[in-house]
Amino acid sequence: MGPLIPMGIIPDQWNSVMAVLIGVAFGFVLESSGFSSSRKIVGLFYGYDFTVLRVFFTAAVTTAVGLAYFSYVGWIDMSLAYIHPTYLTAAIVGGLIMGLGFITGGFCPGTSLCAVAIGKIDGIIFTIGLMLGIFIFSEGYPVWEGLYNGNYLGSVKVTESLGISDNLFIFLFAVMALAAFYVTSLIGRRIKEVNY
């Protein structure tokens, strides 16, 4: 029963080896999906390329459904899984700042690494900027410490705050993703072509 490393089925020493192997798969899939290209990524926000939407939501739904099945058949104990904690204010404010960084820089941290790996200079500059932004945050930490730690709700799930079952939510999430795929496929045929 998983998760394998926390349960001691794979010894802890293998953690770093697994990290590298998982990273290779992650990087390979991102690059092969076109995420080393800022112009392809940003296409989502100008309606000329919906790759990011399709890859991102297909992946999120695949994992959510997979984990629900793994949990149901007893392959994984989800109480041992790390649930990203919710700091209400920071989650929203941080996301808004990242969105502005996304549209100006054309990458997110994972995709910029893929760009670096294949020699994109804009990816290298983005990654240097990334570290500079982290440095600025760290140096000014006392200024935004309150925002960073404000409205802490714990490792709360979206289904707990909506008051519906996990399975129903995952089903609705999948339906919404399919609807988004359908709608964007219609837009895709109408928009003027951007060559890149």
Partner: peptide, 30 residues
């Protein structure tokens, strides 16, 4: 963009991979 993304990812304790994708997959509200 890199500076803003780096800053924002510290505020939100994760970026598109760690917070948005991995968070959403386990139904985290954040």
């Amino acid at each position: 963009g890199g500076v803003l993304f780096g800053f924002g990812a510290q505020v939100a304790r994760g970026c598109t991979s760690g917070a948005a994708l991995s968070g959403a997959a386990v139904l985290s509200l954040g």
